[in-house]
Write a protein that binds this DNA or RNA. Structure first.
Lengths: 203, 203
DNA sequence: AGGAGTTTGTGAACGGGAGAACAAAACGAG
DNA sequence: CTCGTTTTGTTCTCCCGTTCACAAACTCCT
């Protein structure tokens, strides 16, 4: 998030910024921002602030966006389709090297300039392209099997969009994004507002 | 998440479950699960466990999924397209009532059985359908303007997929989902593994 | 009926993140 | 050179979520 904010500031022509400004742009408290940055090193100048370009480079280096990360996406339904086309991945240093789907009827399609290939090709794609990150956009029932296969093929980080809990070996990273749970959280607060307008729930 | 897990158990024919089982299914600690459920009330039976159907209904009622929530999606690019078609929304009680885009060249399209309409129609759609939840799937530069317009139209909960911090008045709920930040977090841990294999960073 | 075995609900301890506050450092004016 | 101003880096404190541990409560078997 700080990197995003810094890129925005750089595009606006800002060369120097204080923790207060950067924190406001990123939407956090300035003390928290300074503490977070201090874990990376001491890249600010007291009395002056942070050099936007320098800090931007340091954060980018630290979090690894200087690399180009190859990614495979499994499950080319609606969501997989959108992820394959999502420009935010490319601009953040991620390169989608393959789209896989278990359904043979989808293997004719070309999505985002890539052939949709058979899930059976996973192992060769992973080893040929040195892929370490996989994205699961399948239905929930298939997610665990896909994850197992990914791990066996050598993938060590998984981004899971299926609404299921994945069991993976030690050392494999998993992050889960559940689109409808986010909406449910909003709906919950909406309901609270409607049930007890302006007052705390006491039942 | 607990509701998801309960639905899964119900589909498997399970009628009763212990906190231990449900916690394992949902991927959390059993003590945490019991404490979370205790905030809703005392719906379990000591020595027996929880009745799956009963608990399922109680959670559904509490979080508001018994309602049918109308939703508008603004920004019908790749992501908006996928969200409009995403079956997970419908099955969780959300109904997409309109798709809006500021680009007139997109107004011809029909996505997920709905016409893509002009962003100008926001106010009438919101009042006609009593919409309180809006989804922003626009580029980052447009997000704040869309949010302002949504708030003015009467929307009180916003799910933001654009990578920007939204400023909204008190009382308006905002949740942010940033797809590429999730990948960046995975890439960060990947880099750490590569730089210091099997050892802690000490620099 | 009574005891053994389970499982919930909750009080207490632990850990970690977030904000307030302050010392250290840099810069500029006189 | 010195003093005042600004802003970082860091410590201290507070608060909240998580986990442990145990009493209360329920079932089943004898």
């Amino acid at each position: 998030m700080y990197l995003r904010a810094l890129i925005g500031l750089a595009e606006d022509g800002t060369t120097t910024c204080s923790s207060e400004e950067l924190a406001a742009t990123a939407g956090v408290n300035s003390a928290k921002l300074r503490k977070d940055l201090s874990y990376l090193g001491s890249y600010g100048t007291r009395g002056v602030g942070y050099d936007v370009e320098y800090l931007r480079y340091q954060i980018a280096r630290e979090i690894g966006v200087t690399h180009d990360w190859p990614v495979v996406i499994v499950g080319i339904g609606n969501l997989g389709h959108a992820l394959a086309n999502y420009s935010g991945f490319r601009s953040r240093g991620f390169r989608v090297v393959a789209l896989l789907d278990a359904d043979p009827t989808r293997h004719d399609e070309v999505v985002a300039g890539l052939d949709v290939r058979s899930f059976e090709d996973l192992e060769s794609i992973v080893s040929d392209n040195d892929v370490s990150i996989g994205v699961i956009a399948t239905p929930a029932v298939a997610a665990q099997a896909v994850a197992d296969r990914m791990v066996a093929a050598g993938i060590t980080s998984i981004l899971n969009f299926a609404p299921s809990v994945l069991a993976v070996p030690e050392g494999v990273g998993v992050r889960k994004v559940d689109l409808s749970i986010e909406l449910q959280i909003l709906a919950y607060h909406e309901q609270r507002k409607a049930v007890a307008p302006g007052s705390e729930d006491a039942s």
